[in-house]
């Protein structure tokens, strides 16, 4: 157990060192543009799986949290010229509040009712932002990047590294949850909410916790997107594609282990980056949808499940 923990943190440190080194060495901008998107989806997928995977509550509202993150950054940048880290921290706080509100509102909704409620939340918030002139309304808003801070000599490189930090944070939290009593409680309530409650699991409180953590991470992941794109409009900030992506990546990777969503996110968003460049963004979404359906039908435990099955049968073969 302990050794695994040390290995994990060594891995995280190596990952961060590598991304940092990359920003100092690589001159070409494209890897950072593409890499940023991949990292962003890792955070979203990992955050999604905390509620959707561990607790079994299918959240269609990733785009709501992401969009609120974007617009928190937009508002802070426009109103106060706040620096990036303040934008992200505030977005995380607002995301946590939003998650709390969502949790309270949907506490007793289960299954599809919860999912539909999260879509509703997305559209309602999008509509409010669309009608909010200060942040540009439906037409959107241009955002100017502040000057780059050393040691980075390029803003996108900095965003890339910041998003890498968020990845480590999200994964560490998700891993902690899975290995702790919180994870066991969430798993129990996912299997059977009444039985969990009657076994002493405070289901409502755990669900609220999952909503808050998941929401905070999603909003935080959205905040740097404003500076990344230098533009924000409601239609793209609240695009349901974020919802379907986060969900698909988690389920395709597999939610039985914290590494599943990471695998799913890397695999799918890397493929998407390739497809967007080579074919079109529509084919991209099509691929996502088809993969999602194929996996939920054919490999319900995702890639993690497939790998485990292979190892399992190999072990049985040995015996």
């Amino acid at each position: 157990m302990k050794r695994k923990g040390i290995l994990f943190w060594i891995g995280a440190a190596v990952f961060l060192a590598a991304t940092f080194l990359m920003t100092q060495v690589v001159g070409n901008q494209y890897p950072f543009f593409a890499g940023y998107v991949i990292l962003q989806f890792i955070v979203l997928a990992v955050a999604w799986s905390i509620l959707g995977g561990y607790a079994g509550y299918v959240n269609f509202g990733t785009s709501a949290f992401f969009g609120v993150g974007v617009y928190t950054a937009v508002f802070l940048a426009k109103a106060f010229g706040a620096p990036l880290l303040v934008q992200i921290a505030t977005a995380a706080a607002i995301g946590a509040l939003m998650g709390f509100a969502l949790g309270l509102l949907t506490l007793r909704m289960q299954g599809i009712f919860f999912s539909i409620a999260t879509i509703a939340l997305t559209i309602i918030i999008e509509t409010v932002i669309t009608n909010w002139r200060f942040v540009g309304g439906a037409a959107g808003i241009q955002i100017e990047r502040p000057p780059t801070t050393p040691p980075f000599d390029n803003y996108v490189q900095m965003l890339f590294f910041v998003q890498a930090l968020l990845v480590v944070l999200a994964v560490a939290i998700s891993r902690y949850i899975q290995n702790s009593w919180i994870g066991r409680g969430l798993q129990a309530l996912r299997d059977d909410e009444l039985a969990a409650e009657c076994t002493g699991v405070p289901t409502l409180r755990l669900k609220l916790m999952a909503c808050v953590i998941s929401g905070a991470l999603m909003c935080a992941a959205g905040a740097p997107a404003a500076m990344y794109l230098q533009f924000a409009n409601p239609a793209s900030a609240f695009d349901l594609n974020y919802s379907v992506s986060a969900l698909a990546m988690s389920l395709i990777g597999g939610t039985a282990h914290w590494s599943g969503p990471i695998i799913g996110a890397i695999l799918l968003s890397a493929t998407q980056q390739l497809l967007t460049v080579t074919i079109s963004s529509e084919v991209n979404v099509l691929l996502l949808g088809v993969m999602l359906v194929l996996f939920v039908v054919g490999a319900p435990e995702g890639i993690i499940g497939l790998v485990r099955k292979i190892f399992h049968s190999r072990n049985e073969g040995k015996e």
Binding site: G185, D191, D192, A195, T199, G200
Partner: peptide, 15 residues
Amino acid sequence: RPFRSMTVAENLMVA
């Protein structure tokens, strides 16, 4: 109403 994704031991550990 067992916790289906768990082993027997894990079921008890929840409690």
